[in-house]
Amino acid sequence: MRKGHHIGLVPAYLLAGLVLIYASYILPRLLPGDFVTAMYSSSHVALTADQEDQIRAHYSHGEGFSRFLVNLLTLNWGYSYAFLTPVSGLILGALPWTLLLLGSAHAISMFFGFIAGVEAAWRRGGYLEKAGVGCMTVLEGMPEIGTGVALLLVFALYLEWFPPSGAETAYAMSSPLGRIWDVARHLVLPLSTLVLAYFPGNFLLTRASMVMVLRAQFVQTARAKGLPPARVRYAHAARNALLPMVTRFGLRIAFMITGALVVENIYSYPGLGTLLFNAIAMRDLPLIQGIVLFSSLLVLFINLALEYVYGWIDPRVDYAY
């Protein structure tokens, strides 16, 4: 039963992945008329007749789906006419920045959101807890665009504490340590925006599920045994509040990506979001297509990995299927 559930999921995800790849293959070919001319006539990129023929050939010649798949696997994702580089190079160059930003934002907001949620549920009814829940609910309603612009205006424009854009100072010749400091300084504002967006949800959810868990009888037993409160909280109760947070992560991925795209753009952070924005602005179709497909597959993969995490955190999940 346990194994059966996971093995049953892999085909579903493979199917979803194939559907995405096929959509990405077929959609540009469904476009009516000469879309290359139509699209590039309104863009800033001037194509030579030769390049225009090339891109038209890229989309219209009878390259089969199998060929498309092989190209995909060999990182042959097309050529960006706006940046005059292969698409794969651009994407793989921007990916580390996005991973750094999103990874640290999630790590911070999940860890601290969880701890804060557990502690809040433990101190239920106190003034501090009530104020915390109030503040977090207000923050939960703030979109990333709002907090991002606000932080930019206050800390980059008015106080000038942090740089307003980029991920590192260009052409700065400095020691490795200096470089880390430089990258960290550039990371602060976008990271804070994302943490402000992710933290409240993690906090509120952990608190809510922890409040339910604390009512359970095994928690009373643990208390009655005379265990230290911190041990009751974390070793006995909190692990049961972990699963909803992971579930929520999977449900919110699409939402979070949208927010991350916007935040990267506000701070011109050189990740996938800014790359996508530039590609859209310059109507660079192969690049847009590459980023969309790559990040969708990445999300799919993360979701599949999460399915395994659920089973690992809470064996009951497997029996539910």
């Binding site: 999921l9 579903a12 995800y13 199917l15 979803a16 559907v19 995405l20 959509a23 990405s24 959609l27 540009p28 476009l31 879309f35 999977g250 449900l251 991925i253 699409a254 990506i257 949208t258 795209l261 996508l276 859209i280 109507r283 179709l285 847009i288 297509q289 969309v292 990040s295 969708s296 999300v299 799919l300 979701n303 599949l304």
Partner: peptide
């Protein structure tokens, strides 16, 4: 429900961006 699982795993933004950019 399987269809729902698949749709949940696909990031909606990306689908929107693709259709918006192309069509």
């Amino acid at each position: 429900m399987r269809l729902a699982d698949i749709l949940l795993a696909v990031p909606a933004v990306m689908i929107l961006i693709m259709t918006a950019a192309l069509f």
